[in-house]
């Protein structure tokens, strides 16, 4: 199961942020004015599992007419979430098995097992997961694991006033996303693109796909994320070689007679 977040119909209301917090009892995440357009939650982390980005740009949106000033303008809003990567670095590196893959294909932290090593945090190429100060454990979107188990859709998808967040079977969502992209292109927004839809990408495709209206990095997303463990076999080989070199080096150094 997964998400298709269609940012072209997002109204930036942040209901997804709030519904997520209500459902999961995620604590408040700081009360500071950032000046980042209407975004005061800054980004995903242990205490923000859905995050709505606001981007003001001097660019046109399709055929949209934006008024008096001789200036192209558009205001992009996009709700970000854990990608539930097919190849999930957070999960791979977790030493306790706290992060695991559920029967829904989602990636979930088990708080009762997490020892707070924080390894998952730098492993995630999307900057999603975080370690909570208060509890000392890692936290992120669970795709509402408990709701899925009783046949309910995730809280954020359910609440979304414009259905910008769509929940469902990934295959179907991928198809829908492709169709939707054509529609948006046909309507004039040529900068639209899909993100996370490609099973051949660096993380094996994500469980949360997006239709973006600009390049991923504009929304704070990595343009070409690669699961770090893709290189792990090579890392192990290099580490092994280095270990052998160390062993051999010391042995040689000691066997050489002399003072």
């Amino acid at each position: 199961m997964g998400f298709f977040t269609d940012t072209s119909i997002c109204i930036g209301c942040k209901a997804c942020e709030v519904a997520c917090k209500e459902w999961n009892a995620v604590p408040e995440d700081g009360l500071s004015f950032t000046g980042m357009s209407y975004d005061n939650s800054v980004g995903l982390g242990a205490d923000t599992w859905r995050h709505v980005a606001f981007v003001e740009q001097r660019k046109p949106l399709g055929h949209q007419e934006t008024g008096a000033r001789d200036l192209d303008f558009r205001w992009l809003m996009a709700s970000d979430v854990c990608k539930h990567c097919t190849h999930a670095a957070c999960l791979d590196v977790c030493p306790t098995g706290s992060l695991f893959r559920t029967e829904y294909g989602t990636v979930v932290v088990q708080e009762d097992i997490c020892n707070g090593c924080g390894y998952c945090v730098p492993a995630c190429p999307f900057g999603v997961i975080g370690r909570r100060e208060a509890s000392g454990t890692a936290a992120k979107c669970t795709m509402c694991y408990d709701r899925l188990e009783v046949g309910q859709e995730p809280a954020c998808a359910k609440t979304c006033p414009t259905d910008s967040i769509q929940f469902g079977e990934l295959d179907e969502l991928r198809e829908r996303a492709a169709r939707r992209l054509e529609q948006v292109h046909a309507a004039g927004t040529s900068s639209a693109r899909l993100y996370g839809h490609d099973p051949a990408d660096g993380v094996g495709g994500t469980g949360a796909l997006f239709l973006l209206l600009d390049e991923p990095q504009v929304y704070g997303l990595p343009p070409d994320p690669v699961v770090t463990t893709a290189d792990l076999p090579s890392m192990w080989r290099h580490a092994g070689a280095a270990a052998l070199a160390l062993l051999a080096g010391i042995a040689v150094a000691a066997w050489r007679r002399g003072r």
Binding site: L91, G97, T102, D112, C144, Y145, D146, R147
Partner: peptide, 20 residues
């Protein structure tokens, strides 16, 4: 590889959603 069912804790999934 210990990345799925094997790693599941007994507590996980044992508490039903409060809506249910």
């Amino acid at each position: 590889l210990g990345r799925a069912a094997a790693a599941k804790s007994p507590r996980t999934g044992s508490r039903p959603a409060r809506t249910a």
